[in-house]
Amino acid sequence: MIPFSYSRAGTAEQATAAAASGHRLLGGGTNLVDLMRRGVEQPERLVDVTGLSDDIRPTPQGGLMIGGAVRNAALAGHPAVRREYPVLSRAVLAGASAQIRNMATVAGNIMQRTRCAYFTDAATRGCNKRSPGSGCDAQGGFSRYHAILGGSSACIATHPSDMCVALAALDAQVHLASAAGLRVVPLVEFHRLPGDAPHLDTVLQPGEIITALELPPPPAAMRSAYRKVRDRASYAFALVSVAACVTVDRGTLTDIRLAFGGIAPKPWRALRAEEALRGTPATPQAIAAALALDFAEAKPLDGNAFKLPLASRTAMAVLADLIGDAA
């Protein structure tokens, strides 16, 4: 690790000021400290933001406002989250280990960087995300954990978060603050697709910080599930994960929100499938056809082509369970 300075921010104002002056924000450190030790990240100044809001409180609209410094474990264990947004609890609990969930913050989880082996190994030459213009060794290399959707010739890294997949399905909003003021960005628009600038993971501007996450009110009678498919039964990143929220009324799918993890540079909302299925009885054949709409643009490689059938089959099983249970 290179030498760095360490300070703490007690308020969002202090944190934005520090961010504006070139500090990197440090939450639980579960990702940043690891990457600093690997030499992938080399910040000279750290500001610890774990002292910022760790409240989870109801919003006037009937949703929840979750402070950026809320620990992952606290989020998953919160009674209101377990009761009203179980898909979020389950997604968080699917990630990492109990120790890491006790450390990692919600904002840090959103900001975590890819686990692509060519990104996390600072001695590998070709990684446009780590070193713009250097190439992408994952293409032609090990691409099992990589994107089949949303990647570019410059980068096929996936975003590794489980939590964000559930947040995408829940239409969460990310609250941002900077010296210029506050703004709110839908989570599904917060992470960028790589295009020709894969070093930019998100739309966060210099000097801007995440202050909170907002969950809209849960639809009445919503049923939800999170299923994670991985190599080890626990403590492993997703090959594919599915977050699904559905409302079924007398055999008709009146509402559906479907998001995938492990297959794209960002949590992937299957908007085309949702639209095709909304208001239908959602038979297995219809679900398969609807999913094909989203996967039509997939660009699988030899190493990750299995994710197309895997994502599709996993989503079909999850939806069949949810719809079947509701019937």
């Binding site: 360490y6 440090l26 639980g28 450190g29 579960t30 400290v33 690891d34 610890d48 774990t50 474990a73 109990a98 120790q99 890491i100 006790n102 450390m103």
Partner: peptide
């Protein structure tokens, strides 16, 4: 255990 919660001491900066 950090304030009773289990954490990884390798990824926790001592100053934190």
């Amino acid at each position: 255990l950090l304030d009773g919660a289990r954490v990884l001491s390798c990824l926790t900066l001592a100053v934190q």
